[in-house]
């Protein structure tokens, strides 16, 4: 399992999956403390219309216009949610519900009205992703990791995911203190002269970036799960934010590895030929971890 076959078939999806999970779980830690956990859910729904509009305009499945379309859709959605919430004085949950369902409906309708029969673009693909199809054809084993030529045949999704993940890690390290402040006591942060709006907009913007990059590589169900499940699991296990963040990253990575292998080889064990959806299995495993933490975690209650 660790020979050439591993590097061709399993190495790229595993690495991409881990980076995608980390990119989502990291901002998720702050989002769940700020009671904005469902932003990830909303973002992953509005990505669809963004991508479809980009496709309608360019007429092709090309990466950058689609990422740009998705990013614009995400920012439009955030602006609309704020507008409904502030101008219409509607509570956040309902405002989000209005905006993301409408934009998703628009995306589905546009998709149905556009001729996408020649390209691989449909709702199911957007939901499940295609982790299994990311392969590294020109790999000859361990030594390929050191060969620049061989590395250049890695799926592009990998480099993109690594890039986005690095941006998010740098952001969190640089702004650790203000992020902590706005997550626990935004009012206090404001009295300290912090511009909390700028900080929270940055946080949501980066979450959108993570959601879109991960969506492109692994599908939106992993995105929603990773924003919430690993951070929530870690939150039930510790009181220290620093430890919570580290734990959440470990849990996200472990879920990815276990989920991937369960989907790929689990069915073989029971004598079943086909493999299952890796994205779905990874997300399910992260949910199982949360269930375990909710039953046995050391900091389940708020005062423990």
């Amino acid at each position: 399992m660790m020979g050439q076959e591993f590097f061709v078939l399993s190495f790229p999806p595993l690495v991409i999956g881990i980076f995608a999970s980390i990119a989502c779980a990291l901002p998720g830690n702050f989002l769940i403390l700020r009671k904005q956990a469902l932003i990830g859910d909303a973002l992953s729904h509005v990505v669809l219309p963004g991508i479809v509009v980009a496709f309608v305009i360019t007429g092709a499945i090309t990466t950058w216009p689609m990422m740009l379309g998705a990013l614009s859709a995400a920012f439009l959605a955030i602006a609309l949610i704020q507008a409904v919430q502030r101008i219409g004085r509607i509570e956040q949950g309902a405002a989000m519900g209005v905006v993301f369902t409408t934009m998703f409906a628009l995306g589905v309708l546009l998709l149905e009205m556009t001729d996408t029969s020649k390209v691989h673009l449909d709702v199911e693909h957007a939901l499940y992703g295609s982790l299994e199809s990311l392969i590294w054809i020109d790999s000859y084993g361990w030594q390929s990791l050191l060969s620049i030529e061989d590395l250049s045949y890695m799926p592009v999704e990998l480099w993109r995911m690594v890039g986005v993940c690095s941006v998010i890690v740098i952001f969190v390290v640089l702004f650790w203190r203000p992020l902590t402040l706005i997550s626990f006591d935004e009012g206090f942060a404001r009295t300290q002269g912090m511009r909390t709006n700028v900080m929270s907009t940055l946080l949501i913007g980066l979450s959108a970036l993570a959601a879109i990059a991960a969506f492109d590589a692994v599908g939106s169900i992993i995105v929603i799960a990773m924003f919430i499940c690993p951070p929530a699991t870690a939150r039930l296990m510790t009181n220290s934010l620093e430890r919570q963040v580290w734990l959440s990253l470990v849990i996200a990575s472990v879920s990815t590895v276990i989920g991937y292998y369960l989907a790929a080889y689990g069915p073989l064990v029971v004598g079943f030929e086909e493999s299952l959806s890796a994205a779905g299995m990874i997300a399910t495993v992260s949910g199982v971890f949360l269930a375990l933490a909710a039953l046995f975690g050391s900091h389940r209650k708020s005062n423990s």
């Binding site: 956990a37 169900i221 929603i224 799960a225 929530a232 959806s277 399910t284 949910g287 389940r300």
Partner: peptide, 30 residues
């Protein structure tokens, strides 16, 4: 029973259940 807020609980349940459903769907397709 836990200190998670409602939005986190909603997100966790919807993503886990839905993902599990997707796994089962791929099972049926096979």
């Amino acid at each position: 029973k836990t200190r998670l807020s409602q939005d986190a609980a909603i997100g966790a349940v919807l993503s886990t259940f839905f993902s599990f459903g997707v796994v089962l769907l791929t099972f049926i397709q096979a």
